[in-house]
Amino acid sequence: MLDHLQKGKNGEEVAAGLLKQRGYRIICQNWRYKNLEIDIVAQEGDILVFVEVKTRSHHAYGMPYEAVDNVKQAKLTRAANHYIATHRYGGEIRFDVVSILYSSKNKTYDTRLIKDAFWPD
């Protein structure tokens, strides 16, 4: 059985692979500013995309993407603002979510990409 951190790390690698298959260019993973983190920063065409990855081994507490609540969205938005300022980016942005259900029985990942998952207030 995978521990929590390993499951999350594996999920981020699966998400990066999915994004690459869909034509995204991965810029970086696990970008940090103080206590804030962006799982994946990518580019799709001319759009800079901030991607939150949520991995779960069951949906008893809801689907993984449902964990990207208002609090998580606010943290991701603050992190994205710091990334934009640090890199002096002035173009279009988007927030995507990759939702992953891991089946320990089958050792498979059921992935779902949600483009434009939310927009900051």
Rank of each mutant, 00 (worst) to 15 (best):
His87Ile: 09
Arg25Cys: 07
Ile93Lys: 04
Ile114Arg: 04
Ile114Trp: 01
Ile27Asp: 06
Ile38Gly: 00
Asn30Ile: 13
Asn81His: 13
Tyr89Phe: 15
Thr108Asn: 09
Asp46Gln: 11
His59Arg: 12
Gly45Lys: 01
Glu66Ile: 14
Leu36Ala: 05
Val51Gln: 01
Gly11Ile: 07
Leu5Asn: 13
Pro120Thr: 08
Glu37Ser: 01
Asn106Thr: 12
Tyr109Trp: 12
Asp39Pro: 05
Ile93Leu: 11
Met1Leu: 10
Ser99Asp: 00
Thr111Glu: 08
Tyr33Asp: 14
Tyr61Phe: 10
Trp119Asn: 15
Lys20Cys: 09
Lys20Ser: 10
Tyr102Leu: 02
Leu5Met: 14
Ile84His: 10
His4Ala: 08
Glu52His: 01
Gly8Gln: 04
Ile114Met: 05
Ile40Trp: 01
Gly90Trp: 05
Ala80Asn: 06
Ile84Trp: 03
His59Val: 14
Ser103Glu: 11
Lys7Phe: 10
Thr111Ser: 10
His82Lys: 06
Pro120Cys: 15
Tyr83Lys: 08
Asp3His: 09
Tyr89Asn: 12
His58Asn: 15
Trp119Pro: 07
Asp46Trp: 01
Met63Ser: 13
Gln6Asp: 15
Ala15Thr: 00
Gly17Met: 11
Gly62Asn: 13
Tyr83Ala: 12
Glu52Cys: 06
Lys75Ile: 10
Asp110Thr: 09
Ile84Thr: 10
Thr108Ile: 09
Glu37Trp: 03
Leu19Trp: 00
Ala42Thr: 04
Phe118Asp: 09
Ala80Phe: 07
Thr111Ile: 07
Arg25Ile: 10
Ala60Thr: 11
Asp121Thr: 15
Ser99Ile: 00
Arg78Tyr: 10
Gln6Leu: 15
Arg32Tyr: 11
Glu13Arg: 05
Arg78Cys: 13
Gln29Phe: 14
Lys115Thr: 15
Trp119Ser: 15
Asp46Tyr: 00
Leu113His: 08
Tyr109Glu: 06
Gln29Leu: 15
Thr111Phe: 05
Gln73Glu: 11
Ala85Thr: 14
Gly91Gln: 06
Asp96Ser: 09
His87Val: 09
Lys54Gln: 02
Asp46Asn: 09
Ser103Asn: 12
Arg88Asp: 13
Leu48Gly: 00
Ser99Tyr: 03
His82Ser: 05
Ala80Ile: 02
Val49Tyr: 04
Tyr33Trp: 12
Asp110Asn: 12
Ala60Val: 11
Glu92Ile: 14
Gly45Met: 03
Lys105Gln: 11
His59Ile: 14
Arg94Pro: 03
